[in-house]
Simulated scan of single mutants.
Amino acid sequence: MLDCQPVLSCLRCECSGHLRGGDTWFSHAPSPQIQPCLARLSACENDLFSAHLRISDNHKPARGYRSQQHRGECSEQIPDRLFHRESPTLSAKFTLYHYARRRQSMRLDRFLSGQTALSRRELTALIRSGAVTVNGASVRKPETPVTPETDRITLKGAQVEYEPFHYILMHKPCGILTAARDAKQQTVMDLLKPEDRLQKLAPVGRLDRDTSGLLLITDDGQLAHQVLSPKHHVTKYYAARLRDPFQKVYISQFYAGIMLREGDREEQALPAECVQLDERTALLAIQEGRYHQVRRMFAAAGNFVEDLLRLQIGGLFLPPDLPAGGTVRIFHKETASLWKKPDISEVKRFFIDNYSSYWIKDTI
């Protein structure tokens, strides 16, 4: 069992983005000898989390990194409650990042900026006017430190609930640009409710202008990276209405990896699953996010996509009762379904049961 006192002392010292403990330097991401302490020292959580650890899957081992056997022993000591049980592709470090961030103290104006659609300037004016209270006492200094998880904070008499990150599902309509902002064109962010237009929200990935369907919008940059990273193989499911009748040869072509033109050369796409829904409608499951990929795959097979709907990302599906342009908030625990991979037959049944009014007339 590790002695946790040296860990506490090293976490107290921040120097140029590093943590020093005795003769050992640790990178931003704590080495496995620190991780069990993060999980076990509930009595010292304030000290641990005040170090503002930035935990990343891509950190390089620092000096003091123990053997592979020791790393395995350490990982086994972290309680199961700190892992996503339904998402084995997520590392313990990713979960600990959320766990740590929830318990950091922060400036009052920064807290309010992350939970409301107001600008920092507007919030500063409101705080100085006495419109904000912390635990029942009026606070007029924007730099006042608060602990979001334990402090009760109100703005104009209404309590501000704390969420470390925000997750919004949108049914993106056709004709709208998928971008955080654009000076000339309407973007998906313009479709958000006024109270949902938080400062750091951004769409996860892109849906083409002429593609509709499920779009995830969040300020959780780490989760967005995990979803978009090819190494995590998050599956996206699309329903495509074709100009010409569906050919069964598409199934084997896509599964083998069809060749796509990339600039002046051709590259093979990753294997993709495809099933027929009706005479001119197909369901496709891909694990990449190439430019206009679904349309280009069918074009390479000799067909043309007239309409395209993204139905699911992993196990996170487009709510059947969500109209085009509509949004709905979800909780962080619901994002665990992103890492699932439903069988394409299940997605086919879901589409037929809930979205038959889109294109399907005679299902097979």
Rank of each mutant, 00 (worst) to 15 (best):
R290C: 08
E334P: 09
A269V: 12
R329D: 03
V275R: 13
L316H: 03
L283T: 07
A269S: 15
G326A: 11
P323R: 01
H332D: 15
G325H: 12
Q276P: 00
H332Y: 14
D321F: 12
V275W: 09
H332N: 14
P320S: 10
Q293F: 02
H332L: 13
A272S: 15
A300W: 00
R290Q: 12
F304Q: 15
Q276C: 10
V328K: 12
L270I: 03
C274Q: 02
V275Q: 08
E334Q: 15
C274T: 13
G289D: 06
V294W: 02
I313E: 00
L322R: 08
R296N: 04
F317L: 13
C274L: 15
L311D: 01
I330Q: 08
Q293N: 09
A269L: 09
G302K: 00
V305F: 03
D321S: 12
A269K: 08
Y291S: 04
V305P: 07
L284R: 05
D321P: 08
R329N: 09
D307K: 13
G326S: 07
E279L: 13
L308P: 01
H332S: 15
G326D: 04
R290M: 09
A301V: 04
S337M: 08
P320E: 09
I313W: 05
E306T: 09
Y291T: 04
E306G: 02
A269W: 04
E273V: 07
L316K: 03
S337Q: 11
D278H: 04
I286S: 06
K333F: 11
Q268L: 07
A272I: 10
A282K: 04
V305A: 01
A300Y: 01
A301F: 04
Q276S: 12
Q312S: 14
V328M: 11
R310W: 05
I330W: 12
L270D: 13
Q268Y: 06
L318Y: 05
E288Q: 10
I313D: 00
A285I: 11
D307Y: 11
A300H: 00
E267A: 15
T327P: 00
E279Y: 11
L338E: 03
Q312R: 13
L318F: 08
L338Q: 01
E288V: 03
Y291D: 02
P271S: 10
M297G: 03
E267W: 13
F317E: 10
C274M: 14
Q287S: 10
